[in-house]
Simulated scan of single mutants.
Amino acid sequence: MSTEQTTEAGSLSYTLNRTLDAPTAAVWQAWTTPGQYTQWAGAAAGSVEMDVRPGGVWKATMVTPDGGRFPLTGSYLEVTENRRLVVGMDVPGRTEPATMTVELDERDGHRTGIVVRQTCDSVEERDMAEQGSTMLLDSLTAFLAGRPTD
């Protein structure tokens, strides 16, 4: 696995790049299947719903390390199977959803490049979102490492 993180000083955007030791289809399934997503993303069991298609909605209740729970909702803005997800996330007080883009790139049939990008409204929001996305990618990496090899 390799990791690259890009955040320019003063920028409201971040980009995370990783190479995962798993085929693209396995990465896609982990990110778009409620049962798998629950296992690695820190969601409460039974709380994840996903209608993975443009305009489809998703929801999950995330569980923090101290046991706190917070619900998340949103919709899928773009879906290209095994390649690209653009996810809208509902944010209280905002009229437009926050948008996160996840792009997958198959490498040699057994590894996947993943790029996560997001632009936020403030440096503080960017820092929190980047930290959360980094934690998600760490958990995804660990989850994929524990799956049977192809």
Rank of each mutant, 00 (worst) to 15 (best):
A25V: 11
T61G: 08
L140P: 00
G10Q: 04
G42D: 09
L85H: 05
W58Y: 14
D108N: 14
T112R: 03
E8Y: 06
G56S: 08
T99R: 15
A43N: 09
Y37L: 14
L137K: 06
L77V: 07
G109W: 01
R111P: 00
M100I: 10
E124G: 03
Y14K: 03
T6E: 12
D21E: 13
R83H: 14
G55D: 10
T3E: 15
V63P: 02
G10E: 05
D121H: 10
G109T: 04
A30D: 02
G56N: 05
A22N: 04
L104F: 11
P34T: 10
G67L: 12
E78V: 13
P71L: 13
Y37E: 00
R126E: 05
A43T: 10
M1L: 12
D90Q: 12
V79L: 07
G35Q: 13
D90P: 04
F70G: 07
V123N: 08
A43I: 01
A145F: 09
I114S: 01
E106N: 12
V79D: 06
D51E: 14
F143P: 00
S75F: 07
R147Q: 15
M135Q: 13
A30M: 04
A26E: 10
L104Q: 01
V115T: 15
S13K: 12
N17A: 05
D127I: 06
Q39N: 10
T112C: 08
T32N: 03
D66K: 14
L104I: 09
V116G: 00
T19L: 12
T134G: 15
G56H: 07
D105P: 00
W28R: 00
V86T: 11
L77Q: 14
M62N: 11
M50I: 10
G93E: 09
G46D: 08
S133R: 01
P65N: 04
G74F: 09
D138E: 15
Q131G: 12
D138G: 08
R18N: 06
T7L: 10
R117V: 11
A129Q: 13
L72Y: 14
P148D: 15
G74L: 11
E78P: 01
A41M: 09
A60Y: 03
D90V: 13
G55N: 11
D51T: 12
A142I: 10
T73L: 06
D138N: 15
L77E: 15
T112A: 06
Q36E: 15
T15Q: 15
S2V: 06
P92G: 04
L20E: 00
F70R: 13
G93L: 07
D51P: 02
L137G: 01
R126W: 07
A26R: 10
P34I: 09
T119P: 02
V91Q: 09
G46S: 08
A129T: 04
C120E: 03
S2N: 13
W40C: 02
G67P: 06
T33R: 03
G10W: 02
T32L: 03
G109Y: 07
Y37W: 07
P92Y: 09
R94Y: 14
D105Y: 05
Q118V: 02
W31L: 09
L140I: 08
E49P: 00
W58G: 01
R94T: 06
N82D: 15
E103L: 08
T64Q: 13
S2R: 12
V63G: 01
M62C: 06
K59G: 07
S11K: 01
R84Q: 12
A25K: 09
Y14V: 03
R126N: 06
V63H: 03
R53P: 02
